[in-house]
């Protein structure tokens, strides 16, 4: 008897072959790790000490980044909740609509925010608004899928109870399902909010405004000590959102 069965060895071998192939494709070289010393020196010499004197000028761009992330994900949540009920097997009113919506959500999810951003910057012009739309569309797809899966995993008992008291389908679903999934919906929402802060930075690189736009401008003009402060602001934003999310979840649960 061995701990690993024959099948496990085959999977291990396949994994090793795929890893070797990926390393070839990405020009992965162990010897390159020696150059990391240079990176450490570069960061130590160029990024420090941080230029904290620019901090007052970063407050407004940081708030713009926060607003982009919040508005994009909040409107996405508002859109995704009703769509999820039509895209969940156990609550969908119409099987054709169910498959169409699932397909629609997959499409939204498969297009990265940066692609939406590039399109909307061209169509709507530079600024935070195209970034909000890019985050909104992608997150409808993500939250729609996550919430519809939560709905499908909900205990069917309360739904049956609502049906047995003569309640209509929509009200029955609302009362039987929403209280069950709400803490997890919030959890997913705050995670996506946190991700959206990082995404809005990238969108700033292509003209989406906020602290990301400042960061890329400073990086391109070799103002690395300013970049350090901008990165610290971003870290602060993510930590604040994470703490706020934990506080809200604790209150709700």
């Amino acid at each position: 008897m061995t701990w690993l069965r024959k099948r496990a060895w085959i999977y291990g071998l396949l994994l090793a072959v795929f890893t070797w192939w990926s390393m070839g494709k990405t020009e992965f070289e162990w010897s390159s790790f020696r150059e990391f010393d240079d990176a450490v020196t570069f960061v130590r010499e160029q990024f420090f000490p941080p230029s904290f004197d620019i901090a007052p000028n970063l407050i407004d761009p940081a708030l713009v980044t926060l607003a982009i992330a919040f508005l994009g994900t909040f409107f996405a949540l508002l859109s995704a909740v009703p769509l999820s009920f039509a895209a969940a097997k156990n609550t969908a009113a119409n099987p054709v609509l169910y498959y169409l919506l699932r397909f629609f959500l997959s499409i939204l999810r498969s297009i990265p925010e940066i692609v939406f951003g590039l399109i909307f910057v061209v169509v709507l012009g530079l600024g935070p608004f195209p970034a909000v739309i890019a985050i909104l569309l992608h997150n409808i797809g993500v939250l729609g899928k996550l919430i519809s899966e939560l709905i499908e995993a909900a205990d069917p008992g309360p739904q049956e109870a609502m049906k047995s008291v003569g309640s209509g389908r929509r009200i029955g679903n609302l009362f039987a399902v929403v209280p069950q999934i709400w803490p997890n919906v919030l959890s997913h929402y705050f995670y996506r909010f946190e991700v959206a802060i990082r995404t809005s930075l990238i969108l700033g690189f292509i003209g989406g405004g906020g602290i990301g736009q400042k960061l890329i401008n400073d990086f391109n003009s070799f103002q690395y000590s300013a970049v350090t402060v901008e990165v610290l602001f971003i870290m602060l934003l993510v930590i604040v959102v994470d703490l706020f999310g934990a506080f809200v979840r604790k209150r709700v649960i």
Partner: peptide
Amino acid sequence: RSRAGMIFQHFHLIPRLTVQQNVLTGLFG
């Protein structure tokens, strides 16, 4: 159905709602 009160083995109550809120759902029909 709104005139036929059903009681289930596993109660089928709505979690996270209060006793009163659960009882009020009996009026939904």
